[in-house]
Amino acid sequence: MSRTKLGLWSVAALLFLVAPLGLGAFWQFIAIEALVFALYAMSFNLLLGYGGMLSFGHAAYFGLGAYGVGILMAKLSAPFWLALLAAPVVAAVSAAAVGYFSVRLTGIYFAMLTFAFQMLFFTVALKATVLTGGDDGIVGLTRPGILVDPAVYYLFVLFITALAIGLLYRMVNAPFGQTLRAIRDNARRVQHLGVHTRAHCWLTFVIAGAFAGLAGGLFALSTGSVFPGWLDWTASATPIVMAVLGGLRVFAGPIAGAFVFVGLETVISGHTEYWPLFMGTIIIALVLLLPGGILGTRSGRVGH
């Protein structure tokens, strides 16, 4: 990492640490949302940016993590820590099952199968009313002790997401991540080097699912609720938009994308009820005018 980059990251870290503490509860909540979605978008970009796998069902794992927390706390009275720990586990287990079948397919067919599984989870969440509350979702989740204070919870979320993103950074720069990029470029070539590429992609899918589940769990504990809409197909566009907005080929791209996206959503929907119209227009403009994303680089390289 170059010196200027290190400097930028330090300034960003300091801003993240201090800035939201001076804001009111509303903006602290928004800041938490931005952090959580940054992690969510990063987990998605592990699949798309690094692995070349366009999942159109990534919201499933965010939602499953959230439901994991919700069901454990509201229906089974599990303690906070256990529930939060369960979020990535539940998501990873589901991702393992879905990924097992999905990584056999590529391109648009991979997208369609991940999508089909997401809709399967969505309809189950909608129909299994006893556990999930159906349409009404699960509400009234509470955080223990000092975490009730949004400012403290913000710092808690900042700590967890920073840890998770740091871990992701190590992963993409480890042989695992290098090999994943090579698979994205030319899977057949990697196969003939002796790598079980399908297993490699499968593991990637599980890891991405786990991080998305963690994000979902953190978010459920921020809002105190879980709704089936988080699992719906329109929700699966969110991580794609954030990742593309920031730049698929830059490690920090999805973080920038998530912050810009959450910021725009907050500001615009504060002024008009037609946020979807604006979002749609932004998406179309992004695709046509800025396909490299905000942090897009000329060389088109990932993670350096």
């Binding site: 997208a111 593309v244 227009t281």
Partner: peptide
């Protein structure tokens, strides 16, 4: 694929 998907997706909202 992701850009094609996003574009028609944006149209859904519009």
């Amino acid at each position: 694929h992701e850009f094609q998907l996003l574009l028609t997706f944006g149209l859904v909202f519009v």
